[in-house]
């Protein structure tokens, strides 16, 4: 008899190789119950592959996975009734109506007939799909399709929801609404694993793992990550940011400069003393007029910092 784990997902040394390519390399995961857990990373960082291994769609090359206490991929068929999965691409039937799609999914999960009806009515109300009930799914807008997909993925009230870049085809307003729904579900005890490459979405997660080139390079709450990174951020406001950029370009201590409108976000290692002074002197030496100040690191800085360091480590 195994004791009840407080973690919904536990992965040890999870690795996936496709031929010579290592898509996911030695990932360790501990995902607690009832949180929204984010996978943040650029395209090709191994987010989708990891999610697919967690729900048994792909079998790992090495490493072990336990989801809701069940071994994956060995016991994956028992798991399928308990998890919901939303693919990156809309994967319900375009030629069926909203109602028919939900009916179909309800039958596939073998919900009892009366319960099924109630559940579908409830979901359509919650996801604002009532007016679209008899419209073919193929003719829905991006946001509506995504709400339908979420409704279908949660029709059997799963304890764990895996969402693979759910908002990639949706406008900002719909993205906000979508996250409100996720928070609602998390409050009711559903654990949600969501992958994204949007920084603002990652910031809303309770906990977060940053993936880069198949490796997990940092994890923690967004705040923890921002505090823990060994980086300081200098904000440079200039009329001519291009000139400022050119002036700072060859300072060896600076490892990243990101432009945001008229501002530059300059990242330096935390152990550099008087970094602000260093930047000011450099700008003055090149005759660039600019306002310089130290600011708090945000998640984007964290992301840039950890992936940058990761690449350096690889080159060394």
């Amino acid at each position: 008899m195994h004791h009840k784990s407080e973690f919904v997902i536990v992965a040890n040394g999870l690795t996936k190789k496709f031929g010579n390519l290592t898509a996911v390399n030695n990932i360790e995961l501990r995902i607690p119950e009832g949180v929204i857990y984010g996978f943040l990373g650029p395209n090709g960082s191994g987010k989708s592959t990891t999610i697919r291994m967690l729900c048994g769609l792909l079998s790992p090359s090495s490493g072990t996975v336990r989801v809701l206490g069940l071994r994956v991929p060995e016991d994956v068929e028992k798991l399928k009734q308990k998890i919901g999965y939303m693919t990156q691409r809309f994967s319900l039937y375009d030629d069926l109506t909203v109602n028919e799609n939900l009916q179909f999914m309800g039958e596939i999960y073998a919900l009892p007939r009366r319960h099924r009806k109630e559940r579908i009515r409830d979901l359509m109300m919650r996801f604002n799909l009532e007016e679209k009930a008899n419209q073919r799914a193929g003719t829905l807008s991006g946001g509506q399709k995504q709400r339908l997909a979420l409704a279908a993925a949660t029709i059997h009230a799963p304890r764990l929801l895996l969402l693979d870049e759910p908002t990639s085809a949706v406008d900002p307003q719909n993205r906000r609404d979508f996250w409100e729904m996720l928070f609602g579900m998390a409050e009711q005890g559903t654990t949600i694993l969501v992958s994204t490459h949007y920084m603002d979405e990652a910031e809303r997660c309770h906990r977060l793992a940053i993936l880069d080139q198949g490796e997990l390079v940092a994890d923690g709450s967004p705040k923890e990550l921002a505090e823990a990174i060994a980086v300081q951020v200098i904000e440079v406001s200039a009329i001519e940011p291009n000139k400022a950029r050119a002036a700072l370009h060859r300072v060896s201590e600076i490892f990243s400069i990101t432009q945001l409108g008229l501002q530059l976000r300059v990242l330096l290692p935390r152990n550099i003393q008087a970094a602000e002074q260093l930047v000011i002197e450099r700008l003055q030496a090149n005759g660039v007029d600019a306002h310089v100040r130290s600011v708090q690191a945000n998640l984007e800085d964290v992301f840039v910092a950890v992936t940058e360091k990761h690449h350096e480590g690889r080159m060394a």
Binding site: C55, L57, E77, K80, Q81, I83, Y85, T87, R89, F90, S91, L92, Y93, M105, I108, Y109, A110, A152
Partner: peptide
């Protein structure tokens, strides 16, 4: 892409 959804059901 329907199949990816289907094989994730029971």
């Amino acid at each position: 892409g329907n199949l990816e959804l289907l094989i994730n059901t029971p």
